[in-house]
Amino acid sequence: MSMLVDVLSWVCIVAGGIFCVIGAIGLVRMPDFYTRMHAASITDTIGAGLLLFGMMLQAGFTLIAVKLVMIGLLLLFANPTATHALAKAARARGLQPLLASGDDSSKP
């Protein structure tokens, strides 16, 4: 049983690390500011979430796990607010997003 939990937390931590790196790669690769935010939100949500879940499995039912849950809730509530504030400020400053060509005519 503890073997199974160990393997599961391994998988979660490695997958979380991979998602964090993918998000950071996207942060470098994406062409403009608004698309970069999408890449960053991968690191913030699923990367961090999987890492926290993996650590929770290692901690078991202790106060450490409760603290990890609190970190997760903080990320879940505060990060979208900061992202939204960034996007809104960028738009208010007049930073135009790069849009796909033929946007209005070819809407699905």
Partner: peptide, 22 residues
């Protein structure tokens, strides 16, 4: 732009948080 740098700083913050827990 400054917003790119802020977004990067925010990501660095999240990663640093995870790093501290690790």
């Amino acid at each position: 732009t400054v917003f790119d740098r802020l977004q990067a700083a925010n990501t660095v913050g999240t990663v640093a948080m995870m790093m501290l827990a690790m």
